[in-house]
Amino acid sequence: MSIADTPRNESLAATAVAGAIAMAVAMGFGRFSYTPILPGMMAGLGLSPADAGIIASANFIGYLAGAVAAGYGWAAGRERLISLSGLFATAILLLAMGLTSSLTAFSVIRFLAGVASAFTMIFTSAIVLSRGLAAGNPHVQATHFGGVGIGIAVSSVMVFLLPAQGFGTVAGWQASWFGGAVIAFAGTAIVAMLLPRGPAVGASSVREKPLIWTRPLVVVTLTYGLFGFGYVITATFLVAMARQGATDHTVEFLAWLITGLSSAVSVFLWRYAVPRLGIVGVYLAGMFVEAIGLVLVVALPSPAAPLIGGLMLGATFIMVTAYGLQIGRALAPQSPRKALAFMTAAFGVGQIIGPLVAGWLAQGSGSFGLPTLLAAGVLLFCAALIGVEMRRIVAASR
């Protein structure tokens, strides 16, 4: 079944496309365009790996704050307004990144961008995924989360095509932030036209019941948070790693482009493994595959290492994010929005710690090898924990 085969297909298709574009803007550009722009900022401004980690962590602190705030009932019935406000704020904040060179200002801007991206992700997902669930169409979820990969791929192409030296007094890294802002404004306008009006299907002004922390939900939330720590090290520093030892910027571009393209189709492709492994099994498999990818990033020579790392990162991190939230919602059927918000908060904590630890270890060791192996070990631990608890999680989520 495709989106076009469902009842009210035109509305459902428009909703899925709106979700994809919103995720491309809020996540692909608002969060992840920092990765391909970072090497130019480090070269042009003399930022150290520790500085880069501080800026990245500020974004993730904002994401955590937004996720926690979203877990309360104040937004019921206002999902669309908050989603569009978050997208507009994302565009403004992308523009602001090109107007300063201060580490403190960068950190404040990225903090606010984290809040905006969390609001957009949570409330747009509430609108889009509820409609896909009501229609019984799994392609809506794949399209929605695939938007993150599309945004990553487009940001990679944008940074590659813009002159590294910039335009006149505008440095190359500044031009990249300005270009991202233009694309974000355009994307926001399109989402405003396509995203359905009114609250999400099934939403009401009545607050959800208190979240009950069962053992399966605790385990899934814990592994989801640790996954945030593990994946974000590569997601933040992959392009910077690709630049080390490279003779030109082609490997950087290809590594992040491959990440985006593979992540754009990952949720759709992994669906074919669900009948055999189940959603929990696919969630486990994604963590294991990404851990192997991180090991290969260290073990393989350049330029193969960042390209393989980008492929395996893209093939897993969106899928694990999407299926992890789906499992969490199933484990808390009376409080799905709270479950989504608190799992996102756990994810945010992992992302805050990851860049700080990676930046510190990289600066001390002179390379990103040690933090990458640490991330791989954390992901292997997550896979093992899910394996031990799988029977309980599957039973509780039915």
Score class of each variant (00 low, 15 high):
132 G>F: 11
159 V>P: 00
128 V>I: 13
147 G>Q: 04
134 A>E: 14
129 L>T: 10
126 A>F: 08
151 G>Y: 02
115 V>T: 02
155 S>Y: 00
117 S>T: 14
137 N>A: 15
146 G>A: 04
166 G>R: 02
165 Q>S: 15
144 H>D: 11
170 V>K: 05
124 T>D: 12
164 A>L: 04
173 W>L: 06
144 H>W: 12
144 H>G: 05
111 F>C: 06
139 H>C: 08
156 S>V: 01
150 I>D: 02
171 A>P: 05
122 I>V: 11
129 L>E: 09
125 S>T: 12
136 G>C: 08
137 N>I: 06
126 A>E: 13
110 R>L: 10
168 G>N: 09
154 V>S: 04
134 A>Y: 01
144 H>I: 04
138 P>Y: 11
171 A>V: 06
115 V>F: 05
158 M>V: 05
165 Q>G: 13
151 G>T: 02
143 T>M: 15
138 P>K: 13
127 I>E: 10
132 G>Y: 10
115 V>K: 03
166 G>M: 02
162 L>G: 00
171 A>E: 14
121 M>V: 08
145 F>P: 02
159 V>A: 07
118 A>D: 06
136 G>N: 10
142 A>C: 08
166 G>T: 01
145 F>R: 06
134 A>M: 11
169 T>A: 15
109 I>F: 09
139 H>I: 10
165 Q>H: 15
136 G>Y: 12
138 P>C: 12
166 G>K: 00
161 L>G: 05
121 M>S: 14
169 T>H: 14
140 V>N: 10
127 I>Y: 05
159 V>Q: 06
110 R>P: 00
168 G>A: 06
138 P>L: 13
112 L>Q: 05
110 R>D: 06
121 M>G: 01
